[in-house]
Amino acid sequence: MRRSLTLLPGAVLVLIGLLWTGQGLGWIGGSPMTGVTLWAVLGPLAALVGMVLLVRGARRVGGNGR
């Protein structure tokens, strides 16, 4: 159960981070966030935090789950 509490938010943060990065860099249009440098910076940071959560959750899978 604890593993899913780490893996799910981690995966969501990675996806949101990629979306924000794409919008900030102007690759994804149709949003007020498109082309705004702030989102090009915050996106990779959110994705990085998500990756940390995914790695921590994956380590719990291999261990005893604590």
Score class of each variant (00 low, 15 high):
Gly65Glu: 06
Ala46Trp: 10
Met1Tyr: 09
Leu48Gln: 02
Ala46Val: 12
Gly26Gln: 05
Gly50Phe: 02
Gly10Glu: 05
Leu19Val: 14
Gly65Phe: 08
Ala11Asn: 00
Ala46Pro: 02
Gly26Val: 05
Val49Asp: 00
Val52Cys: 09
Arg2Leu: 15
Ile16Leu: 13
Ala40Asn: 14
Ala58Arg: 13
Gly57Leu: 03
Asn64Tyr: 10
Asn64Lys: 15
Arg2Glu: 07
Met1Ala: 15
Val12Asp: 00
Trp20Asp: 09
Gly63Ala: 15
Pro9Leu: 14
Gly22Ala: 07
Thr21Phe: 12
Ala46Gly: 10
Leu48Cys: 04
Gly26Met: 05
Gly10Asn: 01
Val55Gln: 04
Arg66Tyr: 06
Leu53Tyr: 10
Leu25Ala: 14
Leu5Gly: 08
Leu13Arg: 08
Leu54Ser: 03
Gln23Lys: 13
Arg60Gln: 14
Gly17Lys: 07
Thr37Trp: 14
Leu45Gly: 13
Leu54Gly: 01
Gly50Ala: 05
Arg56Ile: 14
Thr34Pro: 05
Trp20Met: 13
Gly50Ile: 09
Ala11Met: 05
Gly30Trp: 04
Asn64Glu: 13
Gly10Lys: 01
Leu42Thr: 15
Arg60Pro: 01
Ala58Phe: 11
Val14Trp: 00
Leu8Met: 11
Gly26Cys: 08
Gly57Trp: 03
Gly17Pro: 06
Ala58Met: 15
Gly57Gln: 04
Gly17Arg: 07
Leu53Val: 00
Leu45Arg: 11
Gly65His: 09
Ala11Tyr: 01
Thr34Phe: 07
Pro32Trp: 00
Gly62Trp: 09
Met33Pro: 05
Ala58Asp: 07
Met51Leu: 10
Gln23Pro: 02
Thr6Ser: 12
Met51Ser: 13
Gly30Asn: 04
Val49Gln: 03
Thr37Gly: 12
Trp20His: 11
Val36Ile: 15
Thr6Lys: 13
Gly26His: 06
Ala58Gln: 08
Ile16Arg: 04
Gly10Ala: 08
Trp27Arg: 11
Thr37Tyr: 07
Gly63Gln: 13
Thr34Asn: 06
Val55Thr: 05
Gly24Leu: 02
Leu54Arg: 03
Thr34Asp: 12
Val14Phe: 00
Ser4Tyr: 06
Ala40Arg: 11
Ala11Lys: 00
Met33Phe: 12
Ala46Glu: 13
Leu42Gln: 12
Val12Gly: 01
Gly62Cys: 05
Gly26Asn: 08
Ala47Asn: 07
Gly17Ser: 07
Leu48Phe: 07
Leu45Gln: 14
Thr37Pro: 11
Arg60Ala: 14
Met33Arg: 11
Thr21Asn: 03
Gly29Thr: 15
Leu54Lys: 03
Leu18Met: 11
Gly29Trp: 06
Trp20Ile: 01
Val55Asp: 04
Pro9Asn: 12
Leu53Trp: 08
Gly26Pro: 11
Leu48His: 00
Arg59Cys: 10
Ile16Ala: 15
Val55Met: 10
Met51Pro: 00
Arg3Phe: 10
Ile28Trp: 03
Val52Trp: 08
Val14Gln: 10
Gln23Tyr: 04
Val41Arg: 09
Val55Phe: 13
Leu38Lys: 09
Leu15His: 00
Ile16Trp: 01
Val14Met: 13
Met1Asp: 14
Gly62Asn: 11
Gly62Pro: 01
Gly26Arg: 12
